[in-house]
């Protein structure tokens, strides 16, 4: 890969973003008062003392959604190169190929739907 002006632009813009983020933070450090002590460092739980740590195991019901997302997002990415070439294709073969690709993608949603992932509270049948 050749390092082009576009890459330089991307790097410079990311550095600019870093500057844009760190600048106000440093200003805040310089301007703000520096109080200490008391319950300043207590995690906020509506005024009460926190009950137990927050880094605990809890049932993320969104886990299955993450699985479908993985299936979809990786595959949708493949459609971008297809999109740029699609208007140039001749005949119906291209459409059939896109159809097959999308059909199997949708099948995953139908599968999860039938398994009850989208019904709350979750009753996932295995």
């Amino acid at each position: 890969m050749v390092f082009s002006w576009l890459h330089l632009a991307i790097v410079l813009f990311l550095l600019g973003g870093l500057l844009f983020a760190v600048g106000p933070l440093i200003l805040a450090v310089l301007l703000a008062p520096k109080a200490k002590g008391g319950d300043l460092g207590m995690p906020y739980e509506c005024g009460m003392r926190p009950h137990g740590p927050s880094w605990i195991k809890f049932g993320i019901t969104y886990y299955v959604y993450a699985l479908i997302f993985l299936a979809f997002d990786v595959d949708v990415l493949y459609l971008f190169p297809v999109a740029t070439h699609y208007p140039a294709t001749v005949g119906w073969v291209a459409f059939v190929k896109v159809f097959i690709f999308l059909f199997f993608l949708v099948l995953s949603v139908i599968y999860f739907w039938a398994k009850g992932v989208f019904t709350w509270p979750h009753q996932i049948r295995t």
């Binding site: 106000p24 933070l25 200003l27 805040a28 450090v29 301007l31 703000a32 008062p33 520096k34 109080a35 300043l40 460092g41 207590m42 995690p43 906020y44 740590p53």
Partner: peptide, 18 residues
């Protein structure tokens, strides 16, 4: 906003937090 103190709760992961 700039004139307010930057606070971090006790026990937070400092690197991730900032």
């Amino acid at each position: 906003l700039m004139a307010k103190q930057l606070l971090m709760p006790d026990g937070a992961d400092a690197i991730l937090f900032w």
